[in-house]
Amino acid sequence: MSELQTPKARKRGLVVQEMPGEMLVYDTETNKAHCLNDSAAFVWTSCNGVNTVSDIVREFEAKAKGTVTQDFVWLAIDQLSSKGLLETKIEPRFKGKSRRDVLKSIGLASVAALPIIASLAAPQSALAATSCNCSRHSDCPQLGTPCLTNMCANTGMTPAFTCTA
């Protein structure tokens, strides 16, 4: 992607919750939650399909967020793209580079907090997180096994509980 291209933030299928200094984005298509820090959130909201990277750098600085380089914005765009938060996927700018190299290339000129996006996937099934307790040994669904724990765990997608004894 060249400096003249204009990344566009994805809106469809996202639940966005703005919070002081952070933004929480829940992707209903992948069922992943993303937490964007202030810098990442600013870049994401600036990706309107019209702004170039240079424009975003200027906007960032104008909003008194501190001096930043183009690589600083690219770092955010790389992450936004890899998390599926842009309309079109872009070729990673820092592919194959170590975090140390990336930070070096961004340089000390960028005094603002580095853009960071933390992500977490929701579980496949709410049932996977549950279990059930027997109130007595005779409740155990697995006959013939002397149950020691009175507890069963859901073994995943199988519609059955397995005695954990």
Binding site: V15, Q17, M19, P20, G21, E22, M23, L24, Y26, T28, N31, A33, C35, A118, L120, A121, A122, P123, A126, A129
Partner: peptide, 25 residues
């Protein structure tokens, strides 16, 4: 932070897939 708290509790939130907007609110 509040956002980190919401992120951390997401795996334990039952309606997160069925009704994510309401859950997050």
């Amino acid at each position: 932070s509040p956002a980190e708290g919401i992120m951390s509790v997401t795996p334990f939130t039952l309606p997160i897939r069925v009704n994510p907007a309401y859950s997050i609110r």
